[in-house]
Each structure stands twice: as structure tokens, then as C-alpha cells.
Amino acid sequence: MSSSTDSPTLTTETTQLSPQPDTETAKPTKKITLKSSDNQIFEVEESVAMEFATVKSFFEDSPSTDTVPLPNVTAKPLSQVIEFCKEQIKFKANPDEAQKKKYNAEFVTEKSDKDLVDMIPVANYLEIKDLLDVLNQAVADRIENKSVEYVRSFFGIDNDFTAEEEAALRREHAWAYEGVDED
């Protein structure tokens, strides 16, 4: 509380941090602007944007544009997809399979069910194969051996079968409904 000796060291630290803006200009990288369907702007490095096959071909077709509209993609899953691709670029520069595996596993583990499901159509639309494989595996693991009702609520899907259709399907695959886990 009263230690007056602490404050001088603090001030010296803040003065040291001041020339920070210079480092930004030292390494110029081309930025590409992505615009989500909910009108949010994302500035990403060109190398990251080129991970998105859809964006890459967009640029090949019209190289002069600087903003790529992504009409099928909302901001939240897009930001998560960008986060993933940024890391993958690092692994491309310094290949380390074990670290990459670890990162990919952690990336999906900390996401909610909804986050994972929302990212899949985005990764699919942007054609990011590595991410799609990671997401598909993660979702598959989460619905493994679960009941039909659990899978419906996992994906937020309503049952659109008639009672007759449902009964017929249950008969057809009767063996598959045995021994599922508790929800």
C-alpha cells in the first residue's frame, strides 16, 4: 500500500515500451479484408487468406479487389476459422507434427458443440480441408454412440419424419439402436 519505492521502477518500464509502433512498419505484409454476412470486417494477412481456397480463387479471378464479401459466413465462426488458419501457417513454416496435433486437439476441445457445428459449413464453403477433417472428427467423436434424440439436439435439428416413416426406419436399422450411451 505505502511502498513508495515500487513506483519508480514502474515508470521506467512504461517509458521503455513507448517506441512500439516502429515494429509494425518494419515488416510490411499484404493484408486482405474479408467481410462477413453480418457486415463485420476482418483484416487478415495474405498468407492466411490464401489458406481459404474459395478466397484464393476469388483473387485469381479478380486480383484488383481488396475486400472479399463472404455472404454465407457469419462473424463468430469466421473469426474462429481465421484463428485456426493463422496457427496452421506457423506449422507450415516450422513443421512439427506433434505440436500441430496437440494444437488441433486443443482447438476443438475448448469449443462448444454449437461452435463446432457452425464452423463446419464455413470451413466447407471456404474449402479448408485440414480444418474440415479436424471438425468432422471432433463432431463425430461427440455424437458417437449417442441416441437419435441427443444427435437432434446436438445439431439443433427438428424431426421432420412422419410417425410411419420413423417406425419404418427403426425397423430397417433395428440393430443400430441397441446399446447406445445415456444422453
Binding site: 437419435v148 444427435v151 435439428i157 427438428d158 420413423e166 430397417e172
Partner: peptide, 16 residues
């Protein structure tokens, strides 16, 4: 395709 044959068959009942 990342699940099992059993999970896939069961999933038929989720929706059309």
C-alpha cells in the same frame, strides 16, 4: 463418414 456404421444407420432417423 467419421463415425461408425452403427452411428450412421442410427443417424438416418435424425431428419430427412
Amino acid at each position: 463418414s467419421f463415425t461408425s456404421p452403427q452411428d450412421a444407420c442410427k443417424s438416418s432417423l435424425v431428419s430427412t
